[in-house]
Design a protein around this nucleic acid. Sequence first.
RNA 1: GGCGUGUUCGUUCAGUGGUGAGGACACCGGAAUCUCAAUCCGGAAACACGGGUUCGACUCCCGUACGCGCUACCA
Length: 517
Amino acid sequence: MPEGAKVTRLGPSPTGFLHIGGLYVGLLDRDISTNSGGAYIVRVEDTDQAREVEGAVEQFNRAFEYFGIVPDEADDRGAYGPYHQSQRESIYLTYVREMLRQDKAYLCFATKDELADITARQQATKLPTGYYGRWAIWRDKSAEEVQAKLDAGEPYVVRFRSPGKAGERVSFSDAIRGTLEHEANRNDVVILKASDQSPRLPTYHFAHAVDDHLMRVNLVIRGEEWISSVPTHLQLFDTLGFERVEYAHIAPLMKQQGGSRRKLSKRKDPEASVDFYIEAGFPARAVQYYLRGLANGRLAELPLDEALSSPISLDDCGVAGPLVDLVKLEDISADLVATMSGEEIIDAIKPWAQTYDPALVELLDNERELALKALAVERGADVANPRKDLRKWSDFRPAYGFFFPALFELVGNDDERLGGLDPKIVSAVAADFANNYQHLEDGQEWFGQIRALLEPHGFAPNPKEFKKNPDAYHGSIREAAQLIRVALTGSTRSPDLHAVARTLGEDEVLRRVRALV
RNA sequence: GGCGUGUUCGUUCAGUGGUGAGGACACCGGAAUCUCAAUCCGGAAACACGGGUUCGACUCCCGUACGCGCUACCA
């Protein structure tokens, strides 16, 4: 590996859905390791088996793959495994034994009740809570006492004999925040969980030290909630004789709870989950662009392609937690899709629809020509202002479904989308339009047909005229055109009407308009 | 409670010891228009508060408020 290569790692715990924040960190890990010539590792931190959710790992992998964030080392590849902590039991045990032998760790038989009692007494006397000093009841027990408990078959945990003293402070540097200062750890933290469980599992703190050292990780990017634990980690690295790693604590992308203002919560805010973006069918590149922009504001000013290929710099990461702005994401996404050709759009929609809208796949296969024609309306290399009506693949059905006769439901003359026009007038206009319809190629001439309907049916020739004298008319050319639009598309908004009509074909146009008669 | 960390337009990302505090999205108004969307032009809109330091502070220091985190055999 080249000088300065960063080996990064993501440690997802399979306790539920993948949070967008996890994707964000993975993006940083992947980017920084790639750009420094290092490696990016995914190590599943499944040491809390009680909370484990089945299938979570597969779901994570799918999600990361969708966004093109693929590790160099993981379960199925890499020479530093295993990459599941639950399969590294013997490795942890080896280090624990060595620490025990050197008296840098010890067995603790304190029960839950005893610990709760210690905490309660500390709180009552306003002392810092924790297992330290005189509260560390098993720290200095004699070998005989320990042996007695062992013989009695009592379960125990292994605790780290912290070298920290009261009042001591440590400072360390953070790649994002600069120098940070904190009081030193003096808690004899648990490093190996209960002896009556199998497999014997380490706590996060211990696994972090052992795994990251063994996997030659040298840059740990993680959420800022870990800042308080750094002094503990530093002690662990030092007593194990490991070289310290560099830390980068990033601001949380969003909060999962908290009553005030705009914190995202798992329950109330579906956009907290990565699956939300995949299900909706946001193009991966749009999401990447957005996330990279959040990390480094400078990247948000760049054109998409350039931003995706520019390296992210930890120095430029913000320290305050941003909130995810879906409207902004949709805007980015709409801009991106607007640059794509019909072919590219269909090719992107199909894999998405395979999972989330199978019927659509079939339709696109059977009606590919029609789909291409529909997507060509006001779109393509020769169009100055391409339509931006697709932000995500799930928009296709509502925005373009009407082009397909199989998906279109005929509109009646009393439909509310007609804006309250008298059904009798609707019927008369539709009949007149249909009876005289010419499937003209020229847009102006085609619209001439709608103009021809104005006077006899009581519509003003232009909106201004109508505004001047609203009682004299049913509406203006605006309303008349809208009537035809709703008839043809079932929507009050649609691409250029003439282009729609040409795409649908004469028979289909007549069929739809006649439904209003 | 203790410790840590943060606070710039509605949102987001910038930024400087002396600035007209910038961009983007959203919003409002206008142009154009057969409807949307898009486009073009314009507008409103922010340095949490209080003390210092300084000729001068949004920027540096201290404090307060508020948010968030840690204080677990959760990560």
